[in-house]
């Protein structure tokens, strides 16, 4: 069985690349860190990968708006190769800044013209916040397969409020099963601040494209791959892995099954 290869794409200001790679490695993939400049020089190298990961950070300082400059780089310099990558049935995950990039480049929720129709804007609190949140999985994505209980992950962002162009799009995303994570309370009920840390519409924390193969989410699953990363890990003695690991496992297992 071949180990799926993951391209962890980074640029100036990316800062969760190493832990994202570590998470993929832990579930049996072979991650490689690639700088965008290298990929733009050798675009066809993307063909060697089964999964593309856009990690968290502050690409180009999040100047102008979070993820905007990196999104434009993908959209205006690499769109063809990326669309091919997607058409081949391969996977993409964007975490935090990666989610912002996927949204602002139009890959999520996705349409053929790469037209941006949702956004992630400044938190209602007006500031960057780091806190742990409860998430309820729903919808259809290969990345969230069998995640049935509430999972607990940290968020750390200043621009994570999910909004949509219009209400009909929300219904469409609901119907298509494209809304895959919502912030909730510890008991799984709809969340208000601070359980919904940014004021996102309907508490939306993560979405997928229509195929379920491109995932974007604000919380950081790569920061909870071991149980000792849990804020109250002392009560979890005996458990080794954290609740974010299933997402990476799903992606890698899907790649193995389909390759």
């Amino acid at each position: 069985m071949l180990k799926p290869k993951v391209c962890v794409l980074r640029t100036a200001g990316t800062n969760c690349d190493k832990e994202t790679a570590a998470a993929f490695k832990l579930v049996g993939a072979t991650p490689e860190l690639w700088h965008i400049n290298s990929l733009l020089e050798k675009k066809r190298c993307l063909d060697n990968f089964q999964i593309l990961a856009l990690p968290g950070g502050f690409s180009y300082g999040d100047d102008i708006a979070s993820g905007k400059l990196f999104a434009n780089e993908l959209k205006f310099k690499l769109a063809k190769e990326l669309q091919e990558f997607i058409c081949q049935g391969k996977l993409i995950i964007g975490i935090c800044n990666g989610f912002q990039i996927l949204v602002k480049s139009g890959f999520l929720p996705g349409n053929s013209e790469l037209k941006q129709n949702v956004s992630l804007i400044t938190n209602d609190s007006g500031k960057f916040e780091d806190r742990w949140v409860y998430l309820k999985a729903s919808g259809k994505s290969v990345w969230t397969k069998d995640i049935s209980q509430i999972i607990y992950l940290p968020v750390a962002h200043g621009e994570g409020k999910f909004i949509l162009e219009d209400k009909s799009l929300l219904n469409k995303l609901e119907q298509n099963g494209q809304i895959v994570f919502k912030y909730c309370t510890a008991l799984g009920e709809p969340a208000r601040y601070p359980d919904n840390p940014n004021g996102s519409t309907q508490g939306i924390a993560g979405i997928t494209d229509v195929t379920g193969r491109i995932l974007g989410l604000m919380p950081h699953p790569e920061r909870h791959i071991f149980s000792r990363q849990h804020p109250r890990h002392e009560n979890l003695k005996g458990k080794k892995f954290g609740q974010g690991l299933a997402i990476f496992k799903n992606g890698v297992e899907y790649s193995i099954r389909t390759s």
């Binding site: 800062n15 969760c16 190493k18 832990e19 570590a22 968290g56 500031k127 960057f128 916040e129 780091d130 806190r131 940290p154 750390a156 950081h220 790569e222 920061r223 791959i225 000792r228 990363q229 804020p231 109250r232 890990h233």
Partner: peptide
Amino acid sequence: RQYDHEVQGGSIIKPLV
């Protein structure tokens, strides 16, 4: 809360517990 205290994934005993 305005500081990222989780990045790099190594935080075991965090500033808020």
